[in-house]
């Protein structure tokens, strides 16, 4: 269970009745994206840091330990506190690359 137990005013039954369809499609979209990667003309990024972060996030979704969104956010995050000496790129990429 998460650390904010009981803060949703809706019951589980009510949440599922209201929101199942829109989350069903999100699961299917992710499944299709992973299949698309498998079908790629060339398997040339299987160790890409962004793909690794998605796989790690998927593990969190099913481990049953709660606080999923915070833990997934931290998987995507740069965990360091050091300042960069100078600007390396103008925009973020969406996931932390420990080898960059």
């Amino acid at each position: 269970m998460g650390s904010h137990t009981g803060t949703s005013p809706l019951t589980q039954r009510e949440l599922i009745a209201e929101y199942f369809m829109e989350h069903r499609v999100q699961v299917l979209e992710l499944a299709a994206f992973l299949d698309r990667l498998d079908r790629a003309r060339e398997i040339d990024a299987d160790d890409d840091f962004r793909l690794r972060s998605i796989r790690a996030a998927l593990d969190v979704l099913v481990d049953g330990d709660g606080d999923r969104v915070q833990r997934v956010q931290m998987i995507f995050s740069d965990p360091r506190s050091e300042l960069l000496e100078e600007l390396d790129t103008q925009s973020a990429k969406g996931a932390y690359d420990p080898e960059a």
Binding site: M74, S77, D78, R80, S81, K93, G94, A95, Y96
Partner: peptide, 13 residues
Amino acid sequence: TPHLEDKWKGTKV
């Protein structure tokens, strides 16, 4: 506060 992977780090600083 910064975007995406820089959010946590930047907010902390």
